[in-house]
């Protein structure tokens, strides 16, 4: 079985080497207000390029929505 990661609560095959690669593959690079956490820890935008992804990682990708 291939390595898998969890992105926003969904299991997916691990196909990206870094956070940067993952965001690029989803077409969400350059969006203002996007934030990423890996395994419960925020990865600042400046570190997306270096942050490697490994099998079993749990990733949250969020942005602001309308809220009260």
């Amino acid at each position: 079985m291939s390595a898998r990661i969890r992105i926003n609560g969904r299991d997916e095959p691990l196909q990206s080497a870094t956070v940067s690669d993952l965001l690029a593959s989803r077409g969400i690079v350059g969006n203002r207000g996007v934030a990423v956490a890996v395994n419960g820890v925020v990865v600042p935008a400046g570190a997306w390029r270096e942050r490697a992804l490994a099998a079993g990682d749990e990733i949250e990708i969020v942005k602001p929505f309308g809220g009260g």
């Binding site: 609560g9 989803r26 969400i28 949250e60 990708i61």
Partner: peptide, 11 residues
């Protein structure tokens, strides 16, 4: 005020 939510994977 704004909420923080998981990004949708659609464009």
């Amino acid at each position: 005020t704004v909420a923080i939510r998981r990004i949708s994977l659609e464009p």
